[in-house]
Amino acid sequence: MTRPCPGPRDVTSKPGWRAPPGATDCHMHIFGPYGTYPLSPGRGYTPPEASIAMYRDMLATIGLERTVVVQPSIYGTDNAVTLDAVAALGPDRARAVVVVDDGFDLDALRAMDVRGACGVRFNAVSGNGTPLEQLEALAARLAVLGWHLQLYAHPAELLALEPVLARLPVPVVIDHMAGVQAAEGGVAHPAFQAVLRLLRGGAWAKLCGYRSSAGAPYADVTAMARAMLEAAPDRCVWGTDWPHPSRARPEDVPDDGVLLDALGAWAPDPAQRQAVLVDNPARLYGF
């Protein structure tokens, strides 16, 4: 049985600071329309539709210009909704992170590359995706294309995978603050320390921290975000995670303006903000 979840907020607040030109939301999803893009029967949750028009309204409110569309687990390895969203948002302003398995050969990956795909996501938390056992085999295939590998895993899995991730031949992007909760150790958590070692060795991090927090304004995640920024200032990016499918109640759905304000608190220096929102995404995603 799949769990229900609320849709995105009807109203997004304007953040208290202005993002620089070319700023990028490096993590979001599109859901539906379900008549065109039916849900996977193996999904773990069932969200309301979240359209491109709704997303554009939110993005305009918070003042960002570029987007990375991440394939959600509710569609498994059928990447049609994600690749079509890149086309609709504009290939000059959008990229895709897709979900594949070892049944996708290089020709299939090249066809998605032409449509704006530049990375593959492994989601061991939500499931309905690629088994972690395929990490090394797929990474070798991605290296041929110059793609990166994005990983969302439970902290214990990340800790166990540290030596594997350190030797992969592609950039590794750690998703959602490594899945570590601020209230369960935060920076001191062994998995977070493993991620900091990976960051110092060349990995990337997404400063998408509300899932690690007790709630807005997300100040409890500040130490974690700043530790990642210190470890890899030129390899941290940021994303909204719109429309926030991990939440169970409408009142818990984040306000994306508040999320951007949290990033402003984590990275108060304009040069840091420029790196996280513009320069680092441009290098990782090829803008």
Results as ranks from 00 to 15, higher is better:
18 R>M: 12
154 H>R: 15
80 A>V: 06
175 D>E: 15
248 A>F: 13
80 A>P: 02
74 I>W: 03
112 M>S: 12
222 T>F: 09
177 M>L: 15
12 T>M: 05
259 L>K: 09
187 V>E: 00
117 A>P: 14
158 L>Q: 08
57 D>S: 13
61 T>W: 04
122 F>K: 04
120 V>G: 10
244 H>F: 04
203 A>S: 10
113 D>R: 15
256 D>T: 11
249 R>W: 08
53 A>S: 10
110 R>N: 11
280 N>T: 09
162 E>S: 10
248 A>L: 15
197 R>E: 08
181 Q>H: 09
272 Q>K: 07
34 Y>T: 06
216 A>K: 06
243 P>I: 02
268 P>Q: 06
175 D>N: 14
264 G>Y: 04
253 V>D: 10
128 N>T: 07
238 W>N: 04
277 L>S: 11
197 R>L: 12
147 W>Y: 11
188 A>W: 00
36 T>G: 06
3 R>D: 09
156 A>Y: 08
261 D>P: 06
19 A>Q: 02
31 F>S: 05
105 D>W: 07
260 L>V: 15
155 P>C: 01
86 V>P: 14
184 E>V: 04
188 A>D: 15
252 D>A: 13
213 S>D: 06
47 P>Q: 05
128 N>K: 05
1 M>H: 12
66 R>K: 07
111 A>C: 07
265 A>S: 08
246 S>K: 03
110 R>H: 15
98 V>K: 13
45 Y>P: 05
26 C>W: 06
106 L>F: 01
225 A>V: 07
101 D>G: 12
187 V>Q: 11
69 V>L: 12
200 R>E: 15
281 P>Q: 03
